[in-house]
Design a protein around this nucleic acid. Structure first.
Length: 520
RNA sequence: GAUUCUGUAGCUCAGCUGGUAGAGCAGUACACUUUUAAUGUACGGGUCCUGGGUUCGAAUCCCAGCGGGAUCACCA
């Protein structure tokens, strides 16, 4: 138990006083809610005389006592609406305790109440609930930050004492959500984004599936995994870094379109674009290739933008991004030529190194040809690609699960979509030649031997599946957090994750902490 | 991981070249029956992130640590 502040102690005292006054601070029975605040604000018209019997519940966010009548604001899941509470209306008889003691003394900002009454407009024109019945629903023992707002004649909002400290906002997201309505909006948009994608994929007839998160071998991406241990089996398990290899097994098994929204885990650095656990949507469709998949991505993302914003344009920082089809398409070489003026498509490693030097792109001596090309692209192009753009045809060395290009030696049939200077998806014609796949895995093993901690591991069972035969397949991975950042104009991944990963704060040690420590 | 900024009341913040800690909101008490950042009067509230050091004296200066933000590097 932490040390109680003066205000917390006062609220605890009020809890006792409420019970003495015969008011349950945490009643059990349901409270029947018939309307949301926003519905009333949107649809109430005095001449229609509508909303004459309403029942709402929520948190009291402000109270202005004016003697025997008071104004308060009730915040429910939809928004805020003003309450008008008149002493003699909620206390029709001789006993005025509900108003004088319970409402005026024992109810605090943040407490949950239910109200019944009718809607009207005050003299200054504010749509309000004329409260006839006030029901106490739940006591709040900690004071919430009090954020105030004014709106001038032009409709410009000025906020006072906004709750802005990022650390507190992320650690106590519940508080952030209560007092910062824009935060709630961003998360609703994220959910709508996922729903729009799911609806799109379901309309196409693809099957949403679930594959293991705890895996004996990790694969499908180049990344370091989290490692854990299963006690009964006494074996090491890894948290998945991607779901690619399991989904392809399902294509082998005869499903011809499968997708999964998956939490993946990568044991790597954190930044405003990286959280240790993040969400991807991966999709695999049989008998298709990467050109087909590009069309799908365009259509799906355009549809997401339309569903979230009602238009294909989305403001992201200083950029207005337009998701309308078709998107620009560049091969990697074309993109580099476009932004640097240099055609590197026929260059060997030495010439590439020379080019990098003249373009001031720093290189590491250990980098091979493919890595240099990737570096050139990353340095010269990626940040400049603001409008959604497909970059196609990557060096084979960097894509061990992608099919070799049908006509360009040394390349694979792969594309990424870049938007606002960042990758939002990665896709390819899937490698389904089991002999080629085995060789690619073996090359990864070589990389690992040379110290590459992110090299892929060889998955015998996956190869066995491929040997039974997998149809030509197009595969896609799309970063949901990244796409959410764009669609909600968020500058940090922490703004699209309810509970971003943080170092533990100093709270009193709990029993669970001690147990966990004891087991190590 | 590097650089840099930052940590003071429940919240948002001031606190200068070191001298017993301040404001607004929130809280408490009183007044006020259509107010709206309600208003008026009075009052209470602090581990100045933690630990060392310098000093007669540290929120302030120095060192170390912890948390957070931003930028950069690796990665989705």
């Amino acid at each position: 138990m932490h040390h109680l502040s003066e205000q917390e102690q006062i609220r605890r005292n009020k809890l006792v006083e409420l019970e003495k006054a015969g008011v349950q601070p945490y009643p059990s029975e349901l409270f029947d809610v018939t309307f949301y605040a926003q519905e009333i604000l949107d649809n109430y018209h005095p001449e229609l005389n509508n909303f004459q019997e309403v029942s709402l519940a929520g948190r009291l966010m402000s109270v202005r006592v004016k003697g025997k009548a008071s104004f308060a604001e009730l915040q429910d899941a939809s928004g805020r609406i003003q309450l008008y509470i008149n002493r003699d209306e909620i206390c029709p008889g001789e006993d005025k305790e509900l108003y004088n003691t319970v409402f005026k003394k024992l109810i605090d900002l943040g407490d949950f109440v239910g109200v019944k009454g009718h809607v009207f407009k005050t003299m200054v024109g504010e749509t309000s609930i004329h409260v006839k019945e006030l029901t106490f629903l739940s006591k709040s023992l900690r004071p919430l930050p009090v954020v105030k707002e004014t709106v001038d004649e032009q409709g410009n909002k000025t906020t006072y004492d906004a709750f802005t400290d990022p650390e507190q906002r992320y650690r106590q997201r519940y508080v952030d959500l209560v007092v910062n309505p824009h935060v709630r909006e961003a998360f609703i948009k994220r959910t709508q984004l996922v729903q729009a994608m799911r609806n799109y994929l379901n309309d196409k007839g693809y099957l949403e599936v679930e594959t293991p998160i705890l895996q004996p071998l990790y694969g499908g991406a180049s990344a370091r995994p989290f490692k854990t241990h299963h006690n009964t089996l006494d074996m090491t398990l890894y948290l998945r870094i991607a779901n690619e290899l399991y989904l392809k097994r399902l294509i082998v098994g005869g499903f011809d379109g499968v997708y999964e929204f998956s939490k993946d885990f990568r044991n790597e650095g954190m930044s405003r674009f990286h959280n240790p656990e993040f969400t991807q949507m991966e999709l695999y469709v049989a008998y298709k290739d990467y050109y087909w998949m590009m069309d799908l991505v365009e259509e799906m993302v355009e549809r997401v933008a339309l569903q979230l914003h009602g238009k294909t344009e989305v403001q992201v920082g200083d950029n207005l991004i337009n998701f309308q089809r078709p998107w620009q398409r560049f091969t990697m070489f074309e993109a580099i030529q476009h932004f640097s003026g240099v055609d590197i498509s026929e260059m060997d490693e030495a010439a590439l190194r020379e080019t990098a030097k003249t373009l001031h792109v720093p290189l590491d001596p250990s980098m091979g040809k493919a890595k240099i090309i990737d570096e050139l692209f990353g340095e010269l192009c990626e940040g400049k690609l603001i409008q959604p753009t497909f970059i196609t045809d990557y060096p084979v060395e960097m894509s061990p699960l992608a099919k070799k290009h049908r006509s360009k030696p040394g390349m694979v049939e792969r594309f990424e979509a870049i938007c606002n200077g960042k990758e939002i998806c990665n896709a390819f014609s899937e490698l389904n030649d089991p002999i080629d796949q085995r060789m690619r895995f073996e090359e990864q093993l070589e990389l690992a031997k040379r110290g590459d901690t992110e090299a892929m591991v060889l998955d015998e069972d996956f190869l066995r599946a491929l040997e039974y035969g997998m149809p030509p397949t197009a595969g896609l991975g799309i970063g949901i957090d990244r796409l959410s950042m764009i669609m909600t104009n968020s500058n940090s991944i922490q703004d699209v994750l309810f509970f971003p990963q943080m170092k533990p704060e100093k709270l009193e040690t709990t029993k669970a902490d001690k147990d966990a420590a004891g087991e190590e």
